[in-house]
């Protein structure tokens, strides 16, 4: 068990440290790279918890796809931190005030937190024993059987988001030459070239 504990502290320490670096690093590209490191260690923590499917999906989706696009954008945009800081200081007082109020509210809520006496009984999703069902199968049952309605609705939301993004940004430009592979392939020799018998010295 010492190995697990050591691994936990290793992952947790690196994750916290890299999370701090994400917000304190001056170079935005470094921030993204630290963010990736943080994701990676979060995946490690999931593995320690036995949630191997979640761990792998975290790496595939967040590290492998989302963070790549993020890095892509950050590298291409020349983000000027100093300019961002300028506006930041201007709105700091009011932002801090709102944050403080929310913090105090949260503190009050947490201080007087009561959980409904029947809360335990109401949790009606039984957790299957981990030695009988792999967590991939367990997640699948929850997602595709129990919450299929929400799964499909969420799919609709993503579809709308995609349609919206395309509607608002895609511009058909005039005069762009496009490759039509079907047309290229269906071209015959006699449409494309013409053989002329030229007598030497007379020109075409």
């Amino acid at each position: 068990m010492i190995v697990q504990a050591l691994a936990f502290y290793l992952f947790a320490a690196i994750m916290v440290a890299s999370a701090v670096m994400v917000i304190s690093s001056r170079n935005p590209v470094h921030s993204v790279l630290f963010l990736i490191l943080a994701f990676f260690n979060a995946a490690g923590l999931f593995v320690l918890l036995g949630a191997e499917f979640l761990a792998m999906i975290l790496v595939v989706v967040y590290v492998g796809a989302v963070a790549v696009l993020f890095l892509f954008v950050v590298m291409m945009l020349d983000v000027n931190i100093a300019e961002l800081r300028h506006g930041f200081l201007q709105y700091l007082p009011i932002g801090a005030l709102i944050g403080l109020i929310l913090l105090v509210e949260l503190g009050m809520v947490a201080g007087a937190w009561v959980i409904s006496p029947g809360a335990g009984a109401a949790a009606h999703l039984p957790i299957p024993p981990p030695d009988q069902v792999t967590n991939t199968a367990a997640l699948g049952h929850v997602l595709y059987d129990h919450y299929v309605y929400l799964f499909q609705s969420a799919g609709l939301i993503l579809l709308v988001a995609m349609v919206g993004a395309i509607v608002l940004t895609l511009r058909q430009r005039e005069g762009v030459r496009r490759q039509s592979i079907a047309r290229q392939i269906s071209r015959r020799r006699d449409e494309a070239i013409e053989v002329k018998d030229v007598t030497s010295g007379s020109g075409v």
Binding site: V29, E52, F53, V59, V60, G64, A65, T136
Partner: peptide, 25 residues
Amino acid sequence: DINVGILFLFAISSLGVYGVIMAGW
């Protein structure tokens, strides 16, 4: 011989892009 071996492979191969991006940048 882990339960989610194929996902592990997919995850690792999707990380390969970072070597290239980091080198280029």
